[in-house]
Computed example of a mutant assay.
Amino acid sequence: MPKFVIERELPGAGQLSQDELHAIAVKSNSVLADMGGRAQWLQSFVTDDKIYCVYVGDDADAVREHARVGGFPANVVSQVAGTIDPTTGE
């Protein structure tokens, strides 16, 4: 499955409480369960005003469907073309 990075604009994201983050994760998991494996959430990074999420999925439309059904913003959905890390330079 291709990997995607989703940029979600969410003003004040960095101020969300653990309970609020928990509720978001519960909703996300519920929507994904109903999608029958067409998308899978790997992890998210919360910044001051955005959440960056990493997913694998059948295609970008599956990732956008998850956002739409869950009521989550998905301002930018980008398919990952490759990865690099410090070992790439060795």
Rank of each mutant, 00 (worst) to 15 (best):
A39E: 04
L42G: 03
A67D: 06
V54L: 11
T47A: 14
S44E: 06
V69K: 13
S44Q: 08
A39Q: 02
Y55F: 00
V46N: 12
D48L: 14
D59C: 03
D61Q: 07
Y55L: 01
G57D: 03
A62S: 14
Q43M: 14
D59S: 09
L42R: 11
W41G: 12
V54K: 03
A60G: 05
V69D: 12
G37M: 02
A62C: 11
V54A: 05
D59L: 03
G36I: 00
E65Q: 12
D58Q: 11
A39H: 02
Q43C: 11
M35L: 06
C53Y: 05
D58F: 08
Q40A: 04
V46K: 07
C53A: 11
Y52H: 10
R38N: 04
D61I: 01
S44H: 04
D49Y: 12
A39N: 01
K50D: 11
K50C: 09
V46D: 12
V54Y: 06
K50Y: 06
E65L: 08
V69L: 09
A67M: 13
L42W: 07
Y52T: 11
V63M: 00
G57M: 00
A39S: 06
D49F: 00
D48V: 14
M35Y: 07
L42N: 10
F45D: 07
S44R: 11
S44V: 11
D49W: 15
A60L: 00
A39G: 01
V69C: 13
D48W: 14
A62L: 07
V69P: 05
V63L: 09
V56T: 13
Y52L: 08
D59V: 02
L42V: 12
A39V: 02
I51V: 06
K50N: 15
A67Y: 08
K50E: 14
V54G: 04
G36P: 08
D48A: 14
H66V: 10
V46S: 08
D58H: 10
I51S: 00
L42A: 06
G36Y: 00
A67I: 03
V56L: 00
H66E: 06
G57L: 03
V54D: 03
A60H: 09
V69F: 12
F45A: 15
G37P: 03
D59W: 05
